[in-house]
Structures are given as structure tokens and as C-alpha cells.
Write a protein that binds this DNA or RNA. Structure first.
Length: 269
DNA sequence: ATATGCACCTGTGTGC
DNA sequence: TGCACACAGGTGCATA
């Protein structure tokens, strides 16, 4: 599901609901391969006072007052849902966090996502591995990240979280379209102007999507179960064989970097 | 180095 | 209706 706009939407809601609250009970409904949750996790979470809920790349970070943190990744189908006390756990719900304020559920159909505890040092190391935040960096800073390695395909670079953080398959395709650049182009073939344009379109599409609470093409919902509103604004993603909104040529789809990749052969060179 | 393929899972849509 | 298969917003690892 989630790329930067979706994760940031979730973060804002979680922060508004949970900052200043204390986790008082953890109910574990189901564990799995990614997190064999045991006494250690429960001990690390229960009693913790939440200072803030932050986001870095596609990670959600519950900062605790003692410097430790809970880190969550939604991967494809993870959800954090703010729920009422009488909420009945569903088939894919894995944990319930009860606080002195709201309760929230960790749910994940495909079970790729995770939550884990980290100490301050471990978290710092983890976060340092990511590239710049696209909505905090300047376009010039982002453009510089798209300079090397010269033989790399542009879409592979955009998807690389150590290059720029937070972009995923939808917004990589959308940014390339908006910049008029084919996703197969090598970084070395881009002019300085191309790179700057691409950086600006990355920022623009993420900002516009965030304003709509993200894209729900399938599973994604926010913490209240609401879908994002950006789907109807997508120009290429999920529009194979549909007419380009600019030139009416059919949108093409192929596999690049293992991901379905959408583009307009007329508008993107 | 990069690129590719697959693996982790479940659900849904499509075509036969 | 049933079945087989492709595919899905993300990463991580093992091979080319």
C-alpha cells in the first residue's frame, strides 16, 4: 500500500491521537515470521510514554520518553487503526495497543510488515541509512542524488530508499511521467535541467497526493478506515491501455526493476 | 557495481 | 462454479 503520502497521512493521525499518551496494555492476537513477539516486546512497550509519532522514509516511529522507540513498517498491506473500546478484532489483526487515550490496532493481511522495538542508538543507525526526505530537501539537493551511478535506470534510482527516501512504485511512475522522462533512461543521460525537473515533479506529486490523504488503489486506508483521494489524479499508474491525459495515446505497461511500470511513449522521451 | 528473479504472504480479478 | 494463474503500494537476498 503505502508510500510517503500514505505513511505521512497515517503518521499525522497517530501523532494527533497518541502524543502524550501512555501504552498501558498490549494484546497479541497473532504473531508471525517477521515478529515472534514475546515477553521482551511486551515489556518494552507497556508503560511507555509516547512523546511523538514521527516518520522517516516509509517508517513510522513512536518515540518514547526514555529514548527507545517502536518502529513500524506497513510494507504492502499493513494498517494502524484507531478503534473504539468495543472493537472486535478481525482475522488479520495482530495486536491491540491500549493507551490512557485511544486504542490502536496493528493489522496486516499479507504479513510483510512489522513493528519492532529499538534503542536510541540502533534507531539512529537505521535512520542514517536512508536518503534525504523529498519534502524537506531542496530540489537541487534531490537532483544531485540523481547524478550517479550513471548507468543506473532512473526508476531503479527513484525506488532506492538510500537514494531518496519514501518514493515507491506509484510515485516513481508518476514523477517520471510529469517530468517527461522515460523510466528506463540512465541517470547519465539526464541533463542538469532534466534532473531538476524530475526532482521538482517528485516533490509536486508527493505534495499533491498528501493533500488528498494519499492514493488508495486497493487496500490502503488511513487510521480511521478512510481511503485516500489521489487515485483519480494519477496520470499513468494503473492506467494501462487507457488514454494519456495529455496526448490520448494508450498508456503502456512493462516490468522494470521487478515492478509494473507505466508510461506514455509519446510524452516521455 | 547493476540487474534479475524469487521469497516472504493473502486476496482478488481474469480467463478458461 | 471451479480452477489456475497473474498480480498487488515493499524490501532483502541469492544469483547472473
Amino acid at each position: 500500500m503505502p508510500e510517503l503520502p500514505e505513511v505521512e497521512t497515517v503518521r499525522r493521525q497517530l501523532h494527533a491521537a497518541l502524543a502524550g499518551k501512555t501504552i498501558v496494555v498490549l494484546d497479541v492476537f497473532r504473531t508471525g515470521r517477521e515478529f515472534p513477539v514475546g515477553a521482551d516486546f511486551s515489556l518494552g512497550v507497556v508503560g511507555k510514554h509516547i512523546v511523538a509519532v514521527e516518520r522517516r522514509a516509509k517508517l513510522l516511529i513512536w518515540r518514547f520518553v526514555d529514548g527507545s522507540a517502536m518502529v513500524g513498517h506497513l510494507k504492502m498491506t499493513g494498517k494502524f487503526l484507531l478503534v473504539a473500546e468495543e472493537y472486535q478484532p478481525g482475522k488479520h489483526d495482530r495486536m491491540r495497543f491500549v493507551t490512557d487515550g485511544p486504542q490502536f490496532i496493528w493489522s496486516d493481511v499479507r504479513q510483510f510488515g512489522y513493528v519492532k522495538l529499538m534503542d536510541a542508538d540502533g534507531l539512529a543507525v537505521l535512520l542514517a541509512g536512508y536518503g534525504p526526505e523529498p519534502l524537506l530537501a531542496t530540489p537541487e539537493e534531490l537532483a544531485e542524488r540523481l547524478l550517479t551511478p550513471k548507468t543506473r535506470k532512473i526508476k531503479a534510482a527513484l525506488l532506492d530508499q538510500t537514494c531518496i527516501a519514501g518514493i515507491g512504485n506509484i510515485y516513481a511512475d508518476e514523477a517520471c511521467f510529469r517530468a517527461g522522462i522515460r523510466p528506463t533512461r540512465r541517470l547519465g543521460t539526464l541533463s542538469a535541467k532534466d534532473r531538476l525537473r524530475l526532482a521538482m515533479e517528485v516533490q509536486a506529486v508527493l505534495t499533491e497526493s498528501l493533500a488528498q490523504n494519499g492514493t488508495s488503489s486497493n487496500d490502503y486506508v488511513d487510521t480511521l478506515g478512510e481511503r485516500g483521494g489521489f487515485l483519480g489524479f494519477l496520470r499513468v499508474y494503473g492506467r494501462e491501455n487507457e488514454p494519456c491525459r495529455t496526448c490520448a495515446a494508450p498508456i503502456k505497461k512493462f516490468v522494470l526493476a521487478g515492478r509494473g511500470t507505466h508510461y506514455c511513449a509519446e510524452c516521455q522521451k
